[in-house]
């Protein structure tokens, strides 16, 4: 069953298609949710809510673009909503973390996804959300500003701070690995 057929089946409310969708997307979407929420329980809650929304609104999906992208977008929105509920975004964003970006941090391609995930989860929720949205999901600052109810400038400053933090952590990681 290809993606188009799957979507059609889902739009007809087919239970098997729903199960198939879950089996196909649960893993990647759980990864997305975890990038935002850190806590596995919260991520799973968001995952379920996201799937529910996908099932309920799949009729709105017009066969344009990637269905996976559409599902991912729903998941990201769900995660942000949860994040906002959990701890007001502005609170975490207002936190000022002064971290100097260290240019000498080398891109360690040998670094595992788990290690990088751990670094990402070190970030404050606000930084992490902006970095996720911009660097990984590929949203523009304008979109991020709308999604997080912040200004574009705030989004940019948050991104630079998140990057600085990550670079610093990477540098520390590199040192420890070298030793």
């Amino acid at each position: 069953m290809n993606e188009t057929d799957l979507v059609i089946a889902l739009q007809q409310g087919d239970a098997k298609a729903q199960r198939l969708l879950y089996e196909r997307f649960a893993g990647p979407m759980m990864g997305v949710c975890l990038r935002y929420l850190k806590n596995e329980m919260d991520a799973e809650e968001v995952l379920i809510n996201g799937f529910m929304k996908v099932y309920q609104h799949v009729t709105r999906f017009e066969q344009k673009g990637s269905f996976e992208g559409w599902v991912r977008r729903i998941m990201v929105n769900e995660a942000l909503q949860h994040l906002r509920k959990q701890e007001p975004m502005h609170l975490t964003i207002e936190k000022e973390h002064i971290h100097l970006a260290s240019e000498d941090a080398s891109a360690d391609s040998d670094m595992s996804a788990e290690e990088m995930m751990a670094l990402l989860l070190e970030l404050p929720a606000g930084y992490r959300a902006v970095f996720n949205l911009y660097a990984i999901e590929g949203y523009s600052h304008k979109e991020i500003a709308e999604m997080l109810h912040i200004t574009e400038g705030t989004s940019k400053s948050q991104l630079s701070k998140a990057r600085a933090m990550l670079q610093r952590m990477l540098a520390q990681q590199g040192v420890t690995i070298a030793i």
């Binding site: 649960a26 990864g31 990038r35 991520a43 799973e44 995930m117």
Partner: peptide
């Protein structure tokens, strides 16, 4: 930096629990 994280984490699947 962005690319590094994007490549490693964008499509990194994590299996949810069976109860999910």
């Amino acid at each position: 930096l962005d690319k590094l994280f994007r490549d490693k984490l964008k499509d990194r699947p994590v299996a949810p629990s069976n109860e999910a």
